[in-house]
Amino acid sequence: MVALDFGEVDDTLFTAAAKGADQIVKIPYDEDVPPPLRQAAAMYAQAIKELQADLVLIGVNAHDELEGVLAPLLALNLELPYVGVIRGVKSGDGAATLQAFKEFPGAVMARMNVKLPAVLGILGADQPPRYVPVSRIRAAMKSTEFQEQEVATAAAEPVATVQRMYHPEVGERAEMLEGSEQEVAQRIVEILAEKGVVK
């Protein structure tokens, strides 16, 4: 597992250790704000190249990505093929291939054949997430040593200027129903009756 040393990443890495990660590499990073996406991709690529991995799995659809998506940028930096929005992976016909299942609308999946080495952008697992007991995470915190991998990359400028960040207006359209549970339930039934949903 490879991660940039930013924020509360140690918690994630100790959880990974508790789940059985064999090697954990942390990329030192001392700034107060995360790097622009293209810089982050270059940093990860430098660290991952050292590992000579056949398959790189990275998440997609991160909630804080504003300047694109990290996963395909990482693949570009590694000069490896890429496919993303993947919900499942199986071994392929040969040792150097795998089958990746790419999600499309309408609960449809596309089966893609992927020649390795490659980068896959993972949207979610095809099985529920497996949690580990806190005791095992605590044990991992005592026994795990992170490997540090210094990388040298030129700082990239953000591709756009953020002028303002804010919460959207709340309840712009919704009329809020107030009262006790029974009062709200009764009001909902009245609304459904008015709309003809219940008789």
């Binding site: 093929p81 449809v108 999946m109 893609m112």
Partner: peptide, 10 residues
């Protein structure tokens, strides 16, 4: 290196 094989419908 990445090729489409088939669509799997629900």
């Amino acid at each position: 290196a990445v090729t489409f094989e088939e669509l799997i419908l629900p």
